[in-house]
């Protein structure tokens, strides 16, 4: 319930900053148009359906990078210690961030859904809805993992940017993955394409992408297991330096 409250705070905050909300909505739309236009120019083929599908249907486009920044600041500034409230700070930040991205996502989802429907592409909402928690789980684990760099790096925003760049490249948001054999190139064995491209494909086909869920779960677990000892170690370092 308390995390639902922080979710609501996030929603309210988004509604308060209308320019930010507009930019959150417009930014992916511009990206989608530009990317489809560019790839359309290169291959003389329609890529709008592909990019609308991967960029607008799936929320990970913006979610974890902003969560990780807040996690990082929490670690850097020692908020985790000073945040003397009976809640988990990381879950608090995550739910707040989820709230912040909820409205823009809902708008983008509506746009994407309408566009795809008008173009005769049917999306199985049950598959999409069932897949979202797996994406959020992976994103949160990833944000938690990235944030631990704050114990060791100064320019923490850079770490976030680089991972986001890799994510964008390997999840199918920059290069159209329907042109590439992902198993042959090894991209299939990484988690990124499974939270974007494969879920989009499965939503069109109406089949649950069980393989993708398993891969996302395994990677989430892996990231958290690696992160936990580093988290503890980081705190020891923080405490040894006197905060």
């Amino acid at each position: 319930m308390k995390y639902f409250e922080s979710f609501l705070i996030g929603v309210k905050e988004t509604l308060n900053f209308k320019l930010t909300l507009a930019l959150h909505v417009v930014s992916p739309l511009i990206m989608v148009s530009l990317l489809s236009f560019i790839w359309g120019n290169i291959y003389d083929k329609d890529f709008l359906t592909y990019f609308v599908g991967v960029s607008l249907l799936l929320p990970s486009f913006t979610f974890y990078s902003s969560s990780s920044t807040k996690f990082m600041l929490a670690i850097r500034n020692g908020w985790e210690v000073s945040f003397a409230k009976p809640i988990n700070l990381f879950l608090f930040i995550s739910s707040y961030n989820l709230g912040r991205h909820f409205i823009p996502y809902l708008i983008n989802l509506t746009i994407a859904f309408s566009y795809l429907l008008l173009n005769g592409v049917e999306i199985n909402l049950a598959v999409l809805g069932f897949s979202l928690p797996f994406i959020v789980l992976f994103d949160t684990s990833m944000a938690y993992f990235i944030s631990l760099f704050a114990h060791y790096f100064y320019s923490i925003w850079g770490v976030r940017v680089i991972i986001k760049l890799i994510d964008v490249l390997l999840s199918g948001l920059a290069f159209p993955f329907n042109l590439i054999n992902l198993k042959e190139t090894g991209i299939y064995y990484l988690p990124f394409a499974h939270k974007v491209y494969y879920i989009f494909e499965a939503s069109i086909k109406g089949v649950l992408p069980v393989d993708s869920y398993l891969i996302l779960l395994a990677y989430s677990l892996f990231l958290v297991l690696i992160a936990l000892p580093f988290h503890k170690l980081g705190w020891k370092k923080f405490e040894a330096q006197g905060g």
């Binding site: 320019l19 930010t20 530009l34 560019i38 120019n41 920059a174």
Partner: peptide, 22 residues
Amino acid sequence: KAAIPLFYTIIDIFKIADKPID
């Protein structure tokens, strides 16, 4: 601060800068 997302939008768009545009 309200305008900061504009910068991130541009940086997002920057990702297409190295694509072969005519």
